[in-house]
């Protein structure tokens, strides 16, 4: 049985930028442990000489010319913003 400790859960939640309550930490530790244990069945398979699949079709390095095109204007881009000032997205302070 894989164990995902509460400390690990808190660390992963921080990486994922998710605020998490102590109650959720407990539940998540249990559920992630169960899912990871289930997933460890993959270790039954010898994959040493198997190439990983990242993409099912044989498409590589799709390139286009780096040209600017008309898309949306600034006013439209701000339409759904939760907070804005002087035509810019406003956020809480970044620096202490």
């Amino acid at each position: 049985m894989a164990e995902i400790s509460k400390e690990q859960v808190r660390h992963v939640a921080h990486l994922a930028r998710l605020a998490i309550s102590e109650e959720e930490v407990e539940k998540m530790s249990e559920q992630l442990g169960a899912i990871i244990t289930y997933a460890e069945a993959l270790n039954e398979l010898d994959t040493d000489n198997v190439e990983p699949t990242t993409h099912v079709l044989d498409i590589k390095n799709v390139m286009r010319k780096d040209e600017s095109t008309k898309w949306i204007n600034k006013e439209d881009a701000m339409k759904n913003a939760p907070d804005q000032k002087n035509g810019q997205f406003r956020v809480p302070s970044i620096l202490e």
Binding site: V12, L15, I36, A39, L42, T47, T54
Partner: peptide, 25 residues
Amino acid sequence: MLGTFALSSGYYDAYYKKAQKVRTL
């Protein structure tokens, strides 16, 4: 959470890359 865990440093090869290999199979 599961995805962040599977991609996090120290677990990437064991979970994410392993799964990509089984995907090939």
